[in-house]
Amino acid sequence: MGRRAAAMTGTFSPGSPADVAAFVRAQMLALVVSHGPGGYATTPLPLLPETDDAGEVIEFFGHFARANPQVAMVRDRPRALILFQGPQAYIPPAWVSTPGWAPTWNYAVAQFEVDIQLRPQENDRAIAELVNVLEGREPDGWTIEAMGDRYARMLPHIVAFRATVVRAQAKFKLGQDESDTAFDEIVTALGDTPLSQMMRAARQP
């Protein structure tokens, strides 16, 4: 999986770099965490991943509000952390018939250590690509043209950025170590939810 994904090993590791890319595309909203002389700053932002030929995430594209104090932080200290939290739930023993089975928590997370480069020259592209992903190319989808003159006035109030991935770590704790019986009982109790869907997908050979 390469240098960036070297930490993605173990029982609860994703099956492939493409699994991680699919996960962050599905979650989309990330926490961008920076550190400076005044401490930590965190901003929730929708981010678009870019991948290499192997499907591994190598970069994120997004934008800050220009008034966000974190802009100055990443300008001075580009190294940051990007965190994605997926579906999660407490799994109680009452759901499982196995004697002595202990409670657990199932979840999916991915974190990326990145270097952020502010790219104000790409403000327009950052908005256009985000709108395209969220609204699609359907005839009735919302477009930036609907904003009229307000769009041009808005652009100077954001600053686009690209975050180059330095290293990555992901953990999908989705019942991979459960017996078939316990696994079936858990997903039945969860019902048709994003977590149970992700568990079933991870269970497939």
Rank of each mutant, 00 (worst) to 15 (best):
G2Q: 05
G2P: 03
R3L: 13
R4M: 13
A5M: 10
A6N: 09
A7F: 07
M8G: 02
M8C: 11
M8D: 08
G10N: 05
P17V: 09
P17N: 08
A18K: 09
A18I: 07
A21N: 00
A21P: 01
V24C: 13
V24K: 03
A26C: 04
L29Q: 09
L29P: 01
L29D: 07
A30S: 07
L31Y: 09
V32Y: 00
S34A: 12
S34F: 02
G36P: 02
G39W: 05
Y40C: 13
T42K: 11
T43H: 10
L45K: 05
P46W: 06
L48W: 12
P49W: 09
P49N: 12
D53I: 06
D53T: 06
A54K: 03
A54V: 11
G55V: 02
G55C: 04
E56M: 09
G62N: 03
G62W: 00
H63D: 01
A65P: 05
R66K: 10
A67Y: 03
N68I: 07
N68A: 15
N68M: 00
P69I: 13
A72M: 10
A72D: 15
A72E: 15
V74S: 11
D76A: 14
R77F: 12
R79W: 15
R79A: 15
R79G: 14
A80Y: 12
L83P: 09
G86L: 10
G86R: 08
P87L: 12
Y90L: 08
P92N: 04
P93H: 05
P93W: 02
W95D: 01
G100D: 10
G100K: 10
W101C: 07
A102L: 11
A102T: 15
A102N: 15
P103T: 11
T104V: 04
Y107W: 07
V109P: 09
Q111A: 09
F112V: 00
F112R: 01
V114F: 06
V114E: 00
D115W: 03
I116K: 04
L118T: 05
L118S: 04
R119D: 08
P120Y: 05
Q121A: 15
E122W: 12
D124R: 15
A128G: 06
L130R: 06
V133Q: 13
V133K: 12
R137F: 14
T143H: 12
I144S: 14
E145A: 14
G148K: 09
R150N: 07
Y151G: 02
R153L: 08
L155Q: 05
P156V: 12
H157N: 14
H157S: 15
I158R: 13
I158Y: 14
I158F: 14
R162F: 07
R162H: 12
A163Y: 00
T164Y: 07
V165I: 12
V166I: 15
R167F: 03
R167P: 01
A168T: 00
Q169M: 06
A170C: 08
K171L: 05
K173H: 03
K173R: 10
G175M: 02
Q176H: 04
D177L: 07
E185Y: 02
I186P: 03
I186M: 02
L190M: 08
L190Q: 01
L190A: 10
G191N: 07
P194E: 04
L195T: 02
S196K: 01
S196I: 00
A201G: 04
A202S: 11
A202G: 05
P205L: 08
P205H: 11
